[in-house]
């Protein structure tokens, strides 16, 4: 693929970077990234990946845009209320960069469709809002050998880590099993500061671009946590759990499965 003059200008700040260059920008153009959840985390990730020129970006979300989303989900605008999130997100991404092909997956990701969904992509961004989905994505990506970025946000706090097959621990190494329903609050119950999704979702986009281009070191084996009130980032080293049920040497989880649906998490945030 040769760059047009417009593309040279559009991507000039990337191409100038030694770590990206012409080759890296070409790789970005050939990259395929799936974003699960077009919400607080997925919104900034989708915008940055579209702006970067990632060739194919999938967005999976079954929800429609609600007024209460707009405080943080910056890919959606006031006139989008009521519209499927994947459609609203797709329109903004294509407006930013017509080079990008957007796959709109208007579905709830579940054990029945997750393997097929992730199979078409090089890298997955978990921008979901509930533990069932986070464990499902972890299991599916580990089983499929698919690198992905996990993130979670609540109140003034956020955390993220990257899983690469054969390297570092997975999300299940850290948290083993989801907490019982309502034991740990989600954003809809506890609130979240709008810019938190911007900080953490942008870091997820950063990891995707680094993975695609091979630039730098990925956030494997480490949980990066951000406390906005203390204004502190912290890198917490993550050991592998030798008996991890999905990424351990003798895994008991061989197929993705859904944790029982939880009523409070079914409410659209």
């Amino acid at each position: 693929m040769a760059f047009s003059d417009d593309q040279l200008e559009r991507y000039s700040r990337h191409i100038i970077l030694k770590e990206i260059g012409v080759r890296g920008q070409k790789r970005i153009g050939e990259g395929r990234v799936l974003i699960v959840g077009a919400g607080g985390l997925g919104a900034p990730a989708a915008l940055y990946l579209a702006a970067a020129g990632v060739g194919v970006i999938g967005v999976a979300d079954a929800d429609a845009v609600e007024l209460s989303n707009l405080q943080r989900q910056i890919i959606h605008s006031t006139p989008d209320v009521g519209k499927p999130k994947v459609q609203s997100a797709g329109e903004k991404m294509k407006a930013i960069n017509p080079d990008v092909a957007v796959n709109e997956h208007h579905v709830f990701v579940n054990a029945g469709n997750v393997m097929e969904l992730i199979s078409g992509y090089d890298f997955v961004i978990d921008g979901t809002d509930n533990f069932s989905a986070k464990f499902l994505i972890t299991d599916a990506c580990v089983i499929a050998g698919k690198p992905f970025s996990y993130a979670g946000i609540i109140r003034f706090q956020g955390q993220l880590m990257t899983y690469v097959p054969g390297e570092g621990p997975c999300y299940r190494c850290v948290f083993v099993d989801p907490p019982p329903p309502d034991a740990v609050p989600t954003c809809s119950q506890a609130g979240v500061i709008g810019a938190m999704g911007g900080v953490i979702g942008s870091l997820q986009a950063m990891e995707a671009v680094k993975f695609i281009t091979g630039a730098g070191k990925l956030l494997t084996g480490t949980m990066l946590t951000y406390d906005a009130l203390a204004m502190k980032f912290q890198s917490v080293p993550l050991p592998k759990r030798p008996d991890c049920a999905v990424c351990g040497p003798s895994p008991s989880i061989l197929h993705p499965f859904d944790y029982a649906a939880r009523v409070c998490e079914g409410i659209a945030l």
Partner: peptide, 9 residues
């Protein structure tokens, strides 16, 4: 900076 970018390409 497209001067340098074009040269780099």
């Amino acid at each position: 900076p497209v001067t340098f970018v074009k040269a780099k390409v």
